[in-house]
Each structure stands twice: as structure tokens, then as C-alpha cells.
Nucleic acid binder design. Structure first.
Lengths: 150, 150
DNA sequence: CCAATTTCAGAGTAACTGATATCG
DNA sequence: CCGATATCAGTTACTCTGAAATTG
């Protein structure tokens, strides 16, 4: 049996965000599989390229996961030589992470496919609307972040 | 160390959707915990209330998960008496699901808290912008759906 | 025979809570 | 001592792939 379309009314944002994310993750997983890279790993690499020198705790906050979760992701990336970490000279305990050359290269190979997913789901959507979606989602992120601080 | 704010530039939609979803799921999990309900279970119940009589396969498509994943969720809900399923009279194999009285009541108790999460992240966002976000996200859902059909 | 549905079984991914140690 | 960080260990939550049976 074939399924009919979805109506525009009475559906919550929480719901659509969840469903869209589910679909995106599925495609990402499939795409990233060829490099043995998981979605959380890809996400961490992406953030680190934009923000070299983040600590594990900072990275966790940006990813909206607990530091315990992030440490595992980071440990895996470090073990594979995609990320390297060095102690902050002014702060004994903090370890600042950044991509290695290999990490950058791997990220470069994977990203076109990810952008393709994005283009696929945004095809034909006016730039102005895209901008509004980004703004609203970024505000949502900020509202969600505080509850995450340990 | 405290973290600085996020910039509006050069961040992808795929990224923000993922992060917002992560934050939403965390709050949902925390809220739903008191009823021993997981996020996928809540999602299935929500869909079923809006669409009584969906089959497992249809439910899977709407949730953007495989039918094998959905069958487990559904089986759990049925075992707990929150959902009941009956064979389609015109179609021997298909089982159509709907909420039981208990399922409806449980959903009623949980929903206010979920709406609260939504209000929290959308506070102060103009209705027009909210509508645009919904439209764009619903379009994204449609684009993501086909790849899911087995 | 083919396509869709249901469903079992096993595996893999992703994320969490608790606890400990260190540093400023 | 307190707050933030790092990190180990164990556990839970979620989703997938493979395969088999059933039905129209």
C-alpha cells in the first residue's frame, strides 16, 4: 500500500526536526561509511576545523552531548591520527584539540557528499527562507545549550 | 572556562538540525523518563493519535525508520497495552494499529511537557517565521522520504 | 513470480550515568 | 573547598542488516 502525503497543519516543530534529522543521519551514515566514519565523528571533525584548539568540554557543549560522550569520540579520532591534542600551556589540565593533516584531508573528501545531501533537501528553497530557518534554528540551539552544562 | 557564542555564518543546515535535535531529544528523554517512555515510543504514539489505523510499514515511513525498527517499538507499546492492532478485513496480512484508552491517557499526560520544550525554543519567534521553518522542514521531509522505501 | 508487509534474530551505533582524579 | 576539566567503566537507548513467512 502506498502512503499519502503529509498535511501542513497541526504538526509540531519538535516532530519535524526529529524526522528530518532521522533522514539526514541515514544518508550521512550511508555516505560516511566508505571512510569508516560515524556521524558523531564527522560532526566533531567539522567543528574542530572551524574552531581549532577547542577542549573536550567545549566540543561537547557545541555538539550538545555530554563530555563523557565526546571524550570517546575524540579518543577514537586521536587513535586514528585524525586529531591531535596538546596541553594548554597556561592551564595544565586542559587539552586542546585540532585536526591533523590526515584529518583535514579526510574531511575534505567527505564533505562534498554531505553538501550534496543539503542541496537535495533545500533545492528550490529561496535564500531568504533558508536564512530564516538558519536564524530560528541557531536561536533554538542557544536556548537548548544551557541545560547541557554539567 | 566559559564558551563564547556561535556565529551566524558558514554553519550548515545539516549541522544545526543535528544539534537542535540532539538538544531536543535530551530534554524529551528527561521528561519522558518518568513514564518509562522513550523518544521513539512517544513519537509513534503521537503519530498514531493523529492517524489511527496506520500499518507498521506506514508508521515506519512516517517516522523515517526501517519497518524492522518500527516493529520493535510497536511491539513494546502493544505489550504495554498502549496500542492495539487488528487485521485489515480487506487485507489479511496488514495489521492496523491504534491507541488504546491507556495509550491516549498516557499521551495526554506527557504532551504538555513536550509542548513546553517547543515553546521554550521558539519563544519570541514571530509566527510568520515559524511557519516558514515548518514549510521548509516539511519539504525536506518529503525529499528525504523516498530513499527510505525498502 | 513479484511486490509489499510482517516479523525474528543478531549486530552495530550512539549516548548516558556514575565515579575518580587533577588543576586553579 | 569549589568549579571545571578529563577520563574510565558500565549501561541503556536506538537503529540497522539479513532472512523468512505471508498475502494479493
Amino acid at each position: 500500500m502506498t502512503d499519502s502525503g503529509e498535511e501542513r497543519d497541526d504538526v509540531s516543530l519538535v516532530y519535524v526536526v526529529g524526522r528530518v534529522n532521522q533522514g539526514i543521519r541515514r544518508e550521512m551514515r550511508q555516505h560516511l561509511g566508505q571512510w569508516e566514519l560515524g556521524v558523531p565523528e564527522f560532526t566533531a571533525l567539522s567543528i574542530l576545523r572551524r574552531r581549532p584548539g577547542l577542549s573536550n568540554a567545549q566540543l561537547a557543549r557545541r555538539s550538545m552531548v555530554t563530555p563523557q560522550t565526546m571524550i570517546e569520540i575524540l579518543a577514537g579520532l586521536e587513535a586514528r591520527g585524525l586529531v591531535q591534542r596538546a596541553g594548554d600551556p597556561d592551564h595544565g589540565r586542559i587539552l586542546r584539540a585540532q585536526l591533523t593533516r590526515a584529518g583535514e584531508q579526510l574531511l575534505d573528501s567527505t564533505e562534498p557528499g554531505i553538501e550534496q545531501i543539503q542541496e537535495k533537501i533545500l533545492a528550490g528553497v529561496p535564500k531568504r527562507q533558508q536564512q530564516i530557518v538558519m536564524d530560528v534554528m541557531l536561536r533554538a540551539m542557544e536556548r537548548l545549550r544551557p541545560g547541557l552544562d554539567n
